[in-house]
């Protein structure tokens, strides 16, 4: 593998989310919160969601971790914001499939930049980094139910 292959992992758009994360922060007051960490490596996310009548109206995250985990969190929040819960869950399922190396067509859904993480599927050790934020989102909407 050369650095060219690394470029499939560290794409410019991913680095942009890592450097300038969207929806980073914390809401005031009592908001649905999920704390999730990846115990094998120490990556950590605190995800907050405002869900109203089946719609994720707003979402913020804080966390610590590698470029992939934090970029994925940023992309996820951007993608699910304003979406119906079922759409968000569908997206999460497609994202998981993408991590398994399946060819996913995101065209039907407005999924923001998440397709850029497709290259992670070639780095098995890093898949858990990319899926952490999505797992947190899934736990959050389950809590809401």
């Amino acid at each position: 593998m050369s650095f060219n292959n690394l470029d499939t992992l560290y794409r410019q758009v991913i680095m942009d989310h890592y450097k300038s994360p969207r929806n980073r922060g914390k809401f005031e007051g009592d908001v649905l919160t999920v704390d999730l960490n990846n115990p094998t490596c120490g990556d950590r996310i605190e995800l907050q969601m405002k869900v109203d009548e089946g719609v994720i109206e707003d979402v913020k995250f804080l966390g610590e971790g590698c470029s992939i985990s934090m970029a994925s969190a940023s992309m996820m929040t951007e993608a699910v914001k304003g979406k119906k819960v079922e759409e968000a869950l569908k997206m999460s399922e497609l994202f998981s499939d993408m991590m398994l190396g399946k060819d996913i067509d995101f065209n039907e859904i407005d999924s923001g930049d998440i397709a850029a993480l497709q290259g992670v599927s070639q780095f098995p050790a890093r898949i858990k980094c990319a899926t952490l934020a999505w797992k947190a989102m899934e736990q959050g909407v389950k809590k809401e139910e």
């Binding site: 593998m1 650095f3 490596c41 120490g42 590698c66 992939i68 985990s69 050790a125 890093r126 980094c129």
Partner: peptide
């Protein structure tokens, strides 16, 4: 650079190192 990212780039160079909390939180 996060240690995971360090380890991934080193791996691309054939170098195996550990990254994480090393079971010592």
């Amino acid at each position: 650079v996060h240690p995971h990212d360090v380890a991934t780039v080193l791996d691309a160079e054939g170098i195996a190192v550990r990254a994480g909390h090393h079971c010592a939180q």
